[in-house]
Amino acid sequence: MAERAAAHDRAGVFPEADFAELRTAGLLGLMVPERLGGPGAGFADYAQVAMRLAAGNGATALVFNMHASVTGALAGTPDDLARALGVPETYFAMRDRVLAAVVDGALYAVAMSERGAGSRLSALTTTYEAVDDGFRIRGAKTFVSGAGFADAYLVAAKRAGSEPAAVSHFLVPAGEGITVEQTWDSLGMRATGSQDIDLDVLAPADALLGGLEGLTLLLAQVMPQWLVASYAAVYVGVAQSAVDAAVAHVNERGLGRLPLVRARVGRAESAVAAARLAVLEAAHRIDTAPGEAETNRWVWRAKLLAGETAMDVAASMLEAAGTSATRRGHPLERIFRDARCGSLQPATSDVCADWLGMAALGRDPENDAAVPRW
């Protein structure tokens, strides 16, 4: 994958060969329980895989993250919690069918963000309404990583006319009613294929995730790991790739004799190690105590530290390597652009810091904010 990363970035094309390899290796089914033919991985396993993938190609890891956020949320929500929320028994058969399809190679994308709303679920303009045998979903989405290559899309939409917004998620099969707009031409993560999509689609009744309307905002507050911390693992891997590329460049050019260069590398290596530990601590807590208050604090810490670390480390490694590393085609030039995206993706670094600040001050970061967090 690492050998193909530069070409995919330069052309801005989706890394189809990378995902063919992920299918062959069975990694698309990483989060699927053993009873359905998968390895039954937990969040900590996901984090290790995502960090490793991102060290080779951040864009591939980011698309993998979006896919895993669908399968991980489905596989990782305990049955007793689902029943406590009131989901119908028919949901469990739908969930198992969706997860089993991944073992056979299905790829899922997330269609949540919208122009003007970002990832703030309460501000969505995409709507749905119940119709015979299902739901009619209308709207437009942006930043849909893997658009045009996914077998189904996890679409966030609000019930038409609901106030406050009743937001639900639907797993909508690719095909008629979903139009991919070729809009993706970005600074970084250029190979994610994060196009816009237009929706005017009839989704079957069992496309409603959980089989119950209005669960999305509640789950985002109670168990935010797949909306927040999963990105963190990707950007720790990107930060590590910046250190690796800088070390290779410094050694090749004989720059390691310079104390200031060595100091930059030492600080960067330490910062990445600290961010990795934060992600692994969050992952351990997600696997052992999901939804607990201290677990969620680590979720937000992990995303803040990973996003900031990737950006700072990549910039410092570019300084250490010198002007020659800014040329197109140099690994650090690409990694620098990819790393810059980390603090901007949900939840942004400012949103994470605000959440953590409110928690540290003894306030309720989910309900006391003047502007809804989701």
Results as ranks from 00 to 15, higher is better:
residue 89 E to H: 07
residue 362 G to R: 09
residue 327 R to P: 04
residue 312 D to S: 09
residue 266 G to T: 04
residue 118 G to W: 03
residue 81 L to R: 11
residue 181 E to C: 01
residue 339 A to W: 00
residue 273 A to Y: 02
residue 346 P to F: 04
residue 200 D to W: 07
residue 129 E to G: 07
residue 289 A to V: 14
residue 369 A to T: 13
residue 203 A to G: 10
residue 269 E to V: 04
residue 134 G to H: 06
residue 231 Y to M: 08
residue 370 A to F: 14
residue 165 A to M: 08
residue 38 G to S: 11
residue 303 K to I: 07
residue 56 G to L: 14
residue 278 A to Y: 00
residue 322 G to Y: 07
residue 95 R to S: 05
residue 105 G to W: 06
residue 247 V to P: 00
residue 41 A to Y: 03
residue 131 V to Q: 10
residue 334 R to C: 06
residue 329 G to K: 10
residue 7 A to R: 14
residue 329 G to P: 11
residue 333 E to Y: 12
residue 5 A to T: 08
residue 357 G to N: 08
residue 92 F to Q: 07
residue 78 P to D: 06
residue 26 G to T: 02
residue 169 H to F: 14
residue 319 E to L: 08
residue 256 G to H: 07
residue 254 G to Q: 04
residue 74 L to I: 11
residue 19 F to Q: 01
residue 220 A to W: 01
residue 188 G to E: 01
residue 195 Q to D: 13
residue 267 R to A: 05
residue 327 R to Y: 13
residue 339 A to H: 00
residue 104 D to M: 02
residue 220 A to V: 07
residue 145 S to I: 10
residue 364 D to P: 05
residue 275 A to I: 09
residue 144 V to C: 07
residue 271 A to C: 11
residue 315 A to K: 10
residue 117 A to H: 13
residue 194 S to N: 13
residue 274 A to T: 14
residue 238 V to I: 13
residue 128 Y to S: 01
residue 262 R to C: 05
residue 252 E to H: 12
residue 141 K to V: 02
residue 246 A to T: 08
residue 29 G to P: 05
residue 234 V to M: 09
residue 111 A to I: 04
residue 212 L to A: 11
residue 350 D to A: 12
residue 77 T to E: 02
residue 72 G to C: 01
residue 356 L to R: 05
residue 282 A to W: 01
residue 344 L to G: 04
residue 168 S to T: 10
residue 119 S to K: 04
residue 361 L to H: 14
residue 86 G to V: 14
residue 14 F to T: 03
residue 298 W to D: 00
residue 221 Q to K: 14
residue 280 L to W: 07
residue 271 A to S: 09
residue 13 V to A: 12
residue 247 V to T: 09
residue 222 V to W: 12
residue 207 A to H: 03
residue 269 E to M: 06
residue 346 P to M: 03
residue 27 L to W: 13
residue 168 S to F: 04
residue 325 A to Y: 00
residue 237 G to N: 00
residue 229 A to G: 09
residue 118 G to Y: 06
residue 335 I to N: 01
residue 187 L to I: 08
residue 11 A to H: 09
residue 71 T to A: 15
residue 196 D to F: 02
residue 94 M to Q: 06
residue 363 R to M: 14
residue 345 Q to D: 10
residue 76 G to F: 00
residue 318 L to V: 15
residue 126 T to A: 15
residue 143 F to S: 03
